[in-house]
Nucleic acid binder design. Structure first.
Length: 958
RNA sequence: GGGCGCUUAGCUCAGCCGGGAGAGCGUCGCCCUUACAAGGCGAAGGUCGCAGGUUCGAUCCCUGCAGCGCCCA
């Protein structure tokens, strides 16, 4: 089977992926019988609405690399795929489509609307799975799961009911983040605060009984003055100490209300006027003040409707106004009454819903919570802190879960140690409906379904029940993902086999949302952590470190990097559907500058290799397309090396059927080098250092195998007389050539699965390996007995000498094609010092040098010859002398030699100084001192050899 | 305000346990040498952010500062 002349990733990739999937190679051995130890990764389920972005691609390629690696290591491997129903995001998306028809979701009603969402999911929800396949993801597609499917829904209900029955889920009226556009509560984590500029208003509240005087407060939200319950100052603030306990009138209220000036530590004396208003129903800090002063009778008045308009608690003239219109109106009115003392520009953090972008409003509403903060419940049972939070902290503290890199555990602790109760109810339709039913008296009954509830609470059929309208936070079901996907609450074999999973691969941005909650739920319900390690990777940014975003117009689509995209299509993609269409021109200009020819298709393997090479220490990665191009070239290099191997081994005796073999120096060297690389790559996979793995593979293939080994094989393979050492050696070389290639393919397979499979199919039989696919072959491990230090040493000499000769050739402008004579002298006594008698240059080595440095037959000499007009270099214990007669202008050689001499003198001076330092001799480890001495010796002998040459060489007589 | 991280060649980044500064891309020079021009060979290019400290010795450890970034309040 021959390879095409050119490497065409597109054709290869689709062919092999289909073969793998249809052959069932991605599925684990469920029964576990006879298979290796289980290895399992749960995919962080992408939103069902999502399409693949660079972050997914990066994350998924790391997972696929790990999965393929461990599968080849013989583990019983499961990569569990699936998607998340993404409540708010998905509902918004489908709702937008409905809005476009001029309707709202209320026109359909709950049943029909969720039906529409399911339809949408069936039609479009599979997109991301298709894209993952393009990347080569070897997930168990036959068992794909969805957070809303029947099994996972059962798990959700089970968990809810059990937590409720243990008193760890409760319903309560609390201040929550309310999204006035989506009309639902959202959790703290779904709120993002960014600095925006606003105005600080200073308002005078007149004293009761002394209305010409008053206290001045600073506020950024003057509209909430209307529901103020107190004014607060810092207890140590000398300016106000005498005022605490006095009462002031709340401006603009009708009828007038008076409130008390109280003292509370939370007030910052040096901020604003040092005096703040307290509107406890609409500010989280104020609410805490309210809770801290139960004796003060601070009123808790709600001011807004769910869509953030002024309600009936506001004076008549403000009712029905939007909160911002109301603010303008009130500021005008305050100014009119002379109560607005001052306005100044002010930077403050404005909290917005991460989905809607609307400014969220703290609102007092009834919601469901998971208790994470109580030591004990009112009835004496252990509370959520004891049962859920503390065990999750302990799991990491005790090392049952390890973060990689380790310091992310700090982030984890910091959050969990300050965690609030988890608001799990959402006022939307798409999601797991809360399994709670109310009777006509408002009593709540919790159970898996209505029938279960009736039975559990002994409710007769005559008792009417109405299910809670809310659905659960999407992350509630995600938190169960590591065991719900495996069949829990059923005790399935899959669950037994694969829980706890091996490692979680995810971004730092969802440590709180997801990682912590999975650990909580895993420990609570499975009594075991959900995964042993958490590999946290960085964010994928653009080449210059900017976050990729639609509005910046710097987004890259991983599929475009695989397939390529024209400039026109890329511009179209980046400029359509912008939030701010006025950005289009700038984005187009920037795109045309960055990608004047569009993006060529690099193939999935090159993309995968790029991500591996950039995945260093969990820090963010700046995605540079130049790297991908370089790794596409690397694919091409492997491709062509394989073609070379096949040309020289197909139909030949490569020893796969036995027969005596003799290995050349080069053969022994490359085999030994291969062992080093194998050790390095395996170590790197163990440490999650994919960059090290990629680098080791790159260097082995390109710099060791292609640059040196293949070149060294050529003469023998081409029938060069000097290399004709009989059939045994030829067989040995062919065998090594093909065997090392075959091993390199297996070594690289987890990172670049497609090209390695394509080539392996052709190469493996020649290496005596059989099997339907490379992906189920054993992963190469280091064989210590194949390390050959003697061969490594000898080849090191060859390489040093060749490099030295090439350097001389290059600097003296000797044409690459021209064979030149070379003298190699030494080893001889090095200037006054007894030098180790190095073994004479191996005959094989001499031939290698002649081949790779394009020289005539090397003349060896024990003594240093005095060749006039020649260039000389020292490599190890050898002097390389190139007669330059008729080759080049000696002038350049004089300059070069002078430069080198100067450099040597600098190094010698530094080394001498170090060695004459008594402290160094006495305190540094003996090995280091010895090494330094040897180094100085080398430098000195090099210098003396060069110096001698200088006298008798090119400088002589000029 | 609290916490975390980063600063090494023009660009993107490695650098292990403290002991002679590395890679890829880019640049320059020479080559279409029968696997590969998506290639080969060679070269130039760095005060390791700044200032102290520890040490015989610091890119590496410690302290402070500056700049950049992220998370939490």
């Amino acid at each position: 089977m021959a390879l095409n002349k050119t490497y065409d990733p597109r054709e290869i990739e689709s062919r092999w992926y289909r073969f793998w999937e249809e052959s069932g190679y991605f599925a684990p051995a469920d029964s576990g019988g006879g298979a290796g130890a289980p290895y399992c990764i749960m995919i962080p389920p992408p939103n069902v609405t999502g399409s693949l972005h660079m972050g997914h691609a990066f994350q998924d390629l790391i997972m696929d690399g790990l999965i393929r690696y461990h599968r080849m290591r013989g583990r019983n491997t499961l990569w569990q795929p699936g998607t998340d129903h993404a409540g708010i995001a998905t509902q918004m998306l489908v709702e937008r489509a409905i809005n476009a028809e001029g309707k709202t979701r209320h026109d359909y009603g709950r049943e029909k609307f969720t039906g529409k969402v399911w339809e949408w999911k069936e039609q479009f929800g599979g997109a991301i799975a298709g894209q993952l396949r393009r990347l080569g993801a070897s997930a168990d597609w036959g068992n794909e799961r969805f957070t809303m499917d029947a099994g996972l829904s059962e798990a959700v209900k089970e968990v809810f009911v059990r937590l409720y029955d243990e008193g760890l889920i409760y319903r309560g009226k609390r201040l929550v983040n309310w999204d006035p556009v989506l009309l639902t509560a959202v959790s703290d984590l779904e709120v993002v605060s960014e600095a925006e500029s606003g105005v600080m208003y200073y308002v005078r509240y007149p004293f009761v009984g002394d209305e010409d005087n008053g206290i001045i407060i600073g506020t950024t939200r003057p509209e909430t003055i209307l529901v103020d319950g107190a004014v607060a100052v810092h207890p140590d603030d000398a300016r106000y100490q005498s005022l605490t306990g006095r009462r002031v009138w709340v401006p603009m209220t009708e009828p007038r209300r008076a409130i008390e000036i109280i003292a509370d530590d939370y007030v910052q004396a040096d901020f604003g006027s040092g005096c703040v208003k307290v509107s406890a129903a609409h500010d989280f800090n104020d609410y805490q003040v309210y809770l801290r002063h139960p004796d003060k009778d601070i009123p808790l008045i709600v001011l807004f409707t769910p869509d953030a308009k002024m309600n009936d608690n506001a004076p008549r003239q403000y009712r029905g106004l939007d909160r911002y219109d109301a603010r303008k109106q009130i500021v005008r009115d305050l100014r009119g009454r002379g109560l607005l003392i001052k306005e100044e520009p002010h930077q403050y953090k404005l909290p917005r819903g991460d989905r809607s972008g609307a400014v969220v409003e703290p609102m007092l509403t009834d919601q469901w919570y998971v208790d994470l903060t109580r030591e004990t419940l009112a009835d004496g049972r252990p509370g959520g802190k004891t049962r859920i939070t503390d065990p999750a902290i302990a799991a990491v503290r005790d090392g049952c879960v390890q973060f990689v890199p380790e310091n992310w555990s700090k982030t984890y602790y910091q959050w969990l140690e300050n965690v609030e109760d988890w608001c799990i109810s959402r006022q939307i339709w798409w999601g797991h409906r809360i399994p709670a039913w109310y009777d006509d008296d408002g009593n709540v009954h919790v159970g898996a379904d209505e029938a279960a509830v009736r039975e559990k609470y002994g409710l007769p059929a005559s008792c009417k029940l109405r299910q809670d309208e809310d659905v659960l936070d999407t992350w509630f079901s995600s938190a169960l993902w590591p065991f719900s996907t495996l069949g829990w609450p059923q005790q399935t074999e899959r669950l037994q086999t694969f829980y706890p999973t091996s490692v979680l691969v995810t971004g730092f941005d969802i440590i709180f949302f997801w990682v912590a909650r999975m650990i909580m739920m895993g420990v609570k319900f499975m009594h075991q952590v959900p995964f042993h390690q958490v590999y946290i990777h960085g964010l994928v940014r653009d080449a210059h470190g900017r976050k990729m975003s639609k509005s910046k117009g710097n987004v890259l689509d991983p599929i475009d990097l695989i397939d390529g995209i024209s400039l026109a299509a890329l511009v179209e993609k980046r400029t359509s559907g912008l939030m701010r269409p006025q950005d289009a021109a700038a984005i187009e200009k920037q795109t045309r500058r960055d990608f004047p020819d569009g993006i060529p298709g690099f193939g999935a393997d090159a993309l995968r290799f790029t991500f591996a090479a950039l995945a260093s220490t969990g820090r963010d990665i700046n995605f540079d397309l130049g790297r991908t191009e370089g790794y596409r070239n690397f694919c091409n290099k492997i491709w062509n090396a394989a073609r070379f191997v096949l040309m020289n081994t197909e139909g030949e005796d490569c020893g796969q059927n036995g027969g005596r073999m003799e290995l050349s120096l080069a053969d022994r060297w490359i085999i030994s080098t291969l062992q080093r690389s194998q050790a390095e790559v395996n170590r790197a996979f163990g440490n999650y250092r994919f960059d090290h793995a990629a680098k080791a593979i790159y260097e082995l293939v390109w710099h060791h195998y292609c640059d040196w080994y293949v070149e060294l094989c050529k003469p023998a393979l081409n029938g060069d007389r000097r290399h004709q050492n009989g059939e045994q050696q030829l067989r040995g070389t062919r065998h090594t050539l093909v065997r090392v290639m075959e091993t390199m393919l297996r070594l690289a397979h987890p990172i670049m699965p497609f090209i390695t499979e394509e080539i392996w199919q052709a190469v493996a039989p020649l290496a005596g390996r059989t099997g339907p696919t490379i992906m189920l072959q054993p992963y190469p491990l280091e064989q210590p007995d194949e390390v050959d230090e003697a061969a490594e040493r000898e080849m090191r000499r060859v390489i040093d000498i060749v490099l030295a000769i090439r350097k001389l050739r290059g600097e003296n402008r000797v044409p690459p094609g021209r064979r030149i004579p070379v003298l190699i002298a030494g080893p001889g006594p090095a200037n006054g010092r007894a030098s180790k008698q190095a073994p004479a240059l191996h005959a094989e080595a001499a031939v290698y040098i002649e081949t790779l440095a394009k020289t005539e037959a090397i003349q060896m000499s024990g003594a240093r010859p005095s060749a006039a007009n020649s260039a000389m270099l020292v490599a190890g214990d050898m002097q390389i002398i190139l007669p330059l007669d008729g080759l080049a202008d000696a002038q350049s050689e004089i300059k070069r030699a002078a430069r080198e001499l100067k450099q040597l003198e600098r190094l010698i001076a530094r080394s001498t100084e170090k060695l004459s330092n008594r402290d160094f001799i006495e305190k540094a480890p003996a090995v280091v001192v010895e090494k330094e001495r040897a180094r100085l010796g080398d430098l000195r002998s090099k210098k003396s050899q060069l110096g001698a040459q200088w006298e008798g060489g090119p400088g002589n007589g000029r």
